[in-house]
């Protein structure tokens, strides 16, 4: 990640779930989609996406399917219904967090 890793906790999961909500993808496509959607701000070493995908699949949030594509067999990842619920939860958490931080950043006069 280009940002401080401790501030990125949970962000890759949120981004992957959100991008897979639109369509199924394989790893290379997911990395490219994350980079494009965030304007390269979130750009991890590309190979590290796979342990995250395996973990999410193990949790039942994604489903992996091998399918031929372009002369090779690719592992496509799809969001499950459990994954959709997790996406909603994470989105709520993230929205509340960013609102709170924005509130602080507006200045001391606005801070609680």
């Amino acid at each position: 990640m280009t940002a401080n890793p401790s501030f990125m906790s949970g962000v890759p999961e949120l981004l992957v779930l959100r991008l897979l909500q639109d369509r199924e993808m394989y790893g290379y496509e997911i990395v490219a989609a994350v980079a494009a959607a965030t304007g390269q701000v979130v750009a991890p070493k590309e190979g590290v996406i796979y342990p995250l995908l395996h973990d999410l699949e193990k949790e039942g949030l994604l489903r992996a399917q091998r399918r031929p594509a372009g002369g090779r067999t690719r592992v496509y990842y799809t969001l499950t219904s459990k994954g959709v619920r997790r996406l909603f939860d994470l989105t709520d958490d993230w929205t509340r967090m960013t609102r709170a931080i924005q509130h602080v950043l507006k200045g001391p006069a606005h801070a609680v």
Binding site: K45, E46, G47, V48, Y50, P51, L52, H54, D55, K58, E59
Partner: peptide
């Protein structure tokens, strides 16, 4: 893609695997 250390650490940090 990442070097072997990056790729190994990403996997080893996940107890479920």
């Amino acid at each position: 893609l990442g070097d072997d250390d990056d790729l190994a650490q990403a996997m080893l940090a996940r107890p479920a695997l």
